[in-house]
């Protein structure tokens, strides 16, 4: 990819800039699409149509219209808020999830940075998100925001444990932290001759690992049934209560970017990343990006589906689920996968 860019652009900072802006473009276009999709999914699950008017065909430009509205809105900072922290929080939130995209291999030809500690880096940088949410909650000088922020802190810290342990169990199999290498390992058709060589088919315990990872990633990205930090029927808006306009929009964008990030990590770790499900058919760098995003979007769709089906857990039940079920289960699963690796 870099070579391709350098073939028609003068080498130097410009290439690096274009190179690093690609994930941002993907996030922005994806967010526009995903918010529209969320509404459509919600609409159809609820026996209605969702947005139908704006832009003509099935309200395709509804999100764009909303974006324009948000940009025009007044940027309100509460009088007694900590202005600096309050204004910084959304940017840190978005920066954290944007920075994580650097280690995601979008296709065989494109990865932001070929760092060897890819997964470790993603786990580390996404925990910045909880810092920004606590900042937002504290700086708003609003008790509801504070409650939401406290919940976030507890939730994110707790659910990082099962996430990391399930990722670790995948790393045992792959032996590398570099997501590009993880993906390359999954090329081809190995299992039973027709199943793709994806890690989810590697052993039955990998399926359990995926389910645990998916549940934990729902909690990490604060989606229903784990959307306690912003649960609108209890905490008004949680840490978002005092935000308006584009700063609120950034939090929204972060939430959707986070969904995509965790879905892409899941797709890379368990579903072969940019590998085509049909072996060498429809393979290549461009098709790779297509498959990667398709797999990611499918997982995002499942997240939306869950959101419009399930009620919300209470905060103590959330902690129960994590510490009493997910963490023990993920450790047992880790041991079992390690044993499987030893035996076979």
């Amino acid at each position: 990819m870099q070579q391709f860019l350098e073939s028609f652009l003068p080498a130097g900072p410009l290439v690096v800039f274009v190179f690093s802006i690609i994930p941002l473009m993907i996030i922005l276009v994806y967010a526009l699409f995903a918010i529209w999709l969320e509404r459509k999914v919600a609409g159809h699950i609820q026996d209605r149509l969702g947005p139908m008017v704006t832009g003509g065909w099935h309200g395709w430009s509804q999100t764009i219209a909303d974006l324009l509205k948000m940009i025009q809105k007044e940027d309100i900072v509460p009088a007694k808020a900590d202005r600096f922290l309050f204004k910084m929080a959304p940017f840190i939130a978005f920066a954290a999830s944007y920075a994580a995209f650097v280690a995601i291999p979008f296709s065989s030809g494109y990865i932001g940075s070929m760092i060897d500690i890819g997964v470790f880096y993603i786990v580390a940088i996404t925990s910045l998100l909880s810092v920004s949410i606590i900042m937002a909650g504290w700086a708003s000088n609003n008790k509801w925001s504070l409650l939401g922020a406290m919940r976030t802190a507890a939730q994110t810290v707790s659910y990082e444990v099962p996430t990391v342990v399930t990722i670790l169990s995948v790393i045992i199999v792959t032996g590398t932290l570099n997501l590009m290498e993880v993906t390359e390992m999954q090329t081809g058709n190995a299992f039973l001759g027709f199943l793709p060589n994806w890690l989810i088919f590697h052993s039955p315990f990998m399926v359990i690992a995926f389910v645990l990872f998916f549940i934990a990633s729902l909690a990490e990205s604060h989606r229903v049934p784990f959307d306690l930090p912003e649960s609108e029927s209890e905490l008004v808006g949680g840490y978002q209560t005092e935000y308006s306009g584009m700063r609120w929009g950034l939090f929204m964008l972060t939430e959707y970017a986070d969904m995509l990030l965790l879905s892409l990590v899941g797709a890379t770790l368990f579903f072969g990343g940019w590998n085509s499900p049909f072996g060498s058919f429809m393979d290549g760098p461009v098709w790779g990006a297509f498959w990667m995003l398709l797999k990611g979007m499918l997982l995002v769709f499942v997240m939306m589906w869950l959101r419009w089906t399930l009620p919300r857990l209470r905060v103590d039940q959330l902690m129960n689920l994590c510490w009493k079920y997910l963490i023990p289960l993920s450790f047992v699963n880790l041991v079992l996968i390690a044993l499987w690796e030893l035996i076979f």
């Binding site: 919600a42 699950i45 609820q46 026996d47 209605r48 229903v224 049934p225 959307d227 649960s231 029927s233 419009w308 089906t309 399930l310 009620p311 919300r312």
Partner: peptide, 16 residues
Amino acid sequence: FGLDIGAFTPFLYCFI
């Protein structure tokens, strides 16, 4: 009541 608990969809089914 479902809405308060966080389930949005039954609310709209009821409204239909």
